[in-house]
Simulated scan of single mutants.
Amino acid sequence: MVNLIWLLMLAIGIIVAALTGHIENVTVSAMKAAELGVEVAIELIGVMSLWLGLMRLAEDAGLVKGIARIFGPVIGRLFPSLKPESPALGAIIMNMSANILGLGNAATPFGLKAMEELQKENPTPDVASPAMCTFLALNTSCITLIPATIIGVRLKANSVNATEIIGTTIIATGCAMTVAIFVDFLIRYRRKK
């Protein structure tokens, strides 16, 4: 459905530009947007490489397991079906850490690893387990304390105050995560009945 909406918006824009005699603006805008996209992507490679490297070092040094033990009680309440020694917990913790720091691209590999580990523990492989559903809800709504990627994009776009979004980001993502946890518990409670 989203693809159809984008296609319609693009087609309508091109048709209107052609009818009004401004078709060259479409070409110029498309080229400028493509150039900006490449520039931003290249500049973000450094930031993403740094965080992915730090995350990998933390994983290899055993920091992930240590953090998993510290946050064990909270994670235990969120994922009651997982055992404390579950390999999925480390990937979940790292995914959430990257999301909290606003590094969505760095969180993706850990999210994939977490789902892979959760699938290994899934008693019914054809259906998502409650732990998988909970993780998906947390992953998509995780609170973001430092929206590093967005701040980087804003800096690249010459924003006067690139960090002014931190407060509203914390409030918005905090509300989203609270609702996700509440709905997850509500659905889980209703299923037990």
Score class of each variant (00 low, 15 high):
112 L>A: 12
123 P>E: 13
113 K>C: 09
98 A>V: 10
105 N>I: 13
115 M>I: 09
120 K>M: 12
124 T>L: 10
98 A>H: 02
113 K>H: 06
106 A>V: 14
104 G>Y: 02
111 G>D: 04
118 L>N: 08
110 F>P: 04
110 F>M: 05
108 T>W: 02
96 M>L: 14
113 K>W: 13
125 P>N: 09
112 L>C: 05
120 K>C: 10
125 P>A: 08
96 M>R: 04
110 F>I: 04
105 N>S: 15
119 Q>A: 10
121 E>T: 08
109 P>D: 01
105 N>P: 14
113 K>D: 12
117 E>Y: 10
125 P>H: 05
125 P>F: 12
111 G>N: 02
113 K>E: 10
100 I>R: 01
117 E>M: 10
98 A>S: 08
119 Q>H: 10
120 K>D: 11
124 T>H: 12
110 F>H: 10
123 P>W: 04
96 M>C: 10
113 K>L: 15
118 L>W: 06
99 N>L: 06
102 G>W: 00
120 K>P: 12
125 P>G: 07
117 E>I: 05
105 N>A: 13
108 T>Q: 06
107 A>F: 01
118 L>G: 01
120 K>V: 15
96 M>K: 07
111 G>E: 06
106 A>R: 01
117 E>L: 09
96 M>G: 09
120 K>Q: 07
100 I>Y: 10
98 A>P: 14
108 T>K: 07
97 S>V: 15
97 S>A: 15
117 E>N: 08
123 P>Y: 06
118 L>R: 00
121 E>I: 11
117 E>R: 04
115 M>L: 14
100 I>G: 00
119 Q>R: 13
106 A>G: 04
105 N>D: 12
115 M>V: 15
121 E>C: 11
96 M>S: 08
109 P>T: 07
102 G>A: 03
110 F>V: 07
118 L>I: 14
125 P>M: 06
114 A>V: 06
104 G>C: 00
124 T>G: 05
106 A>D: 05
100 I>A: 03
101 L>V: 11
116 E>P: 12
98 A>L: 03
101 L>F: 13
102 G>E: 01
122 N>I: 12
124 T>Y: 13
115 M>E: 10
104 G>Q: 06
103 L>Q: 01
115 M>H: 03
118 L>D: 05
107 A>H: 00
98 A>G: 03
115 M>S: 02
96 M>I: 15
112 L>H: 04
124 T>V: 13
112 L>I: 15
97 S>Y: 11
117 E>K: 13
118 L>T: 13
112 L>W: 02
108 T>S: 11
122 N>R: 05
123 P>D: 07
122 N>E: 09
96 M>H: 05
99 N>F: 00
111 G>Q: 00
102 G>R: 00
113 K>R: 13
99 N>A: 03
108 T>I: 14
96 M>Y: 14
109 P>R: 01
107 A>Y: 02
110 F>T: 01
119 Q>V: 09
121 E>G: 07
117 E>T: 04
109 P>N: 01
110 F>A: 01
123 P>L: 12
100 I>H: 03
119 Q>P: 11
108 T>A: 12
121 E>Q: 03
107 A>L: 04
101 L>Y: 02
112 L>E: 10
101 L>Q: 03
